[in-house]
Design a protein around this nucleic acid. Structure first.
Length: 120
DNA sequence: TGTTTGACCACGG
DNA sequence: GCCGTGGCCAAAC
């Protein structure tokens, strides 16, 4: 929901949330793509942002994977299998904690949204 | 205020 | 092709 952060100024958090929400159902992306699209320069921050989002916001963090296409963040969900369940529910086949056909399911924000796209 | 850590990525050996 | 190291930025301790 990107509520006001009160004592803190808006951060890339909101941007990450917005981008992840734009991910179409049945598609996946990786941290590096988001980080590069937002010009964060640090893909680690995307994970941190999602860590906050999963717990409270309606951000489909399960669509965000690492560059290998692995479900690296599954352990952060309510249950380790929840992430896989959600992906399979969207028609994304998972095999050994990795997305099958990750290359064709990959969704690039910079390519789909455009370089001048902004959440606000 | 300084140090540590984190759902990562790229590069080198 | 796998493992180790560096870099990146921000939040938590």
């Amino acid at each position: 929901m990107s509520k006001e952060r009160a004592t803190t100024t808006p951060t890339y958090y909101d941007l990450v949330y917005a981008v992840v929400r734009q991910i179409p159902r049945g598609r996946v992306t990786n941290y590096g793509a988001i980080a590069d699209f937002l010009a964060l320069g640090a893909s680690r921050m995307v994970g941190w942002a999602l860590n906050n989002s999963v717990l409270g916001d309606g951000v489909p963090a399960h669509r965000v994977l690492n560059r290998k296409g692995e479900l690296s963040g599954r352990h952060h969900f309510a249950t380790p299998t929840l992430m896989q369940e959600l992906l399979e529910s969207e028609g994304i086949p998972i095999e050994d904690n990795r997305v099958t056909g990750f290359d064709q399911l990959f969704w690039s924000p910079a390519q789909e949204l455009g370089d001048d796209w902004e959440p606000f």
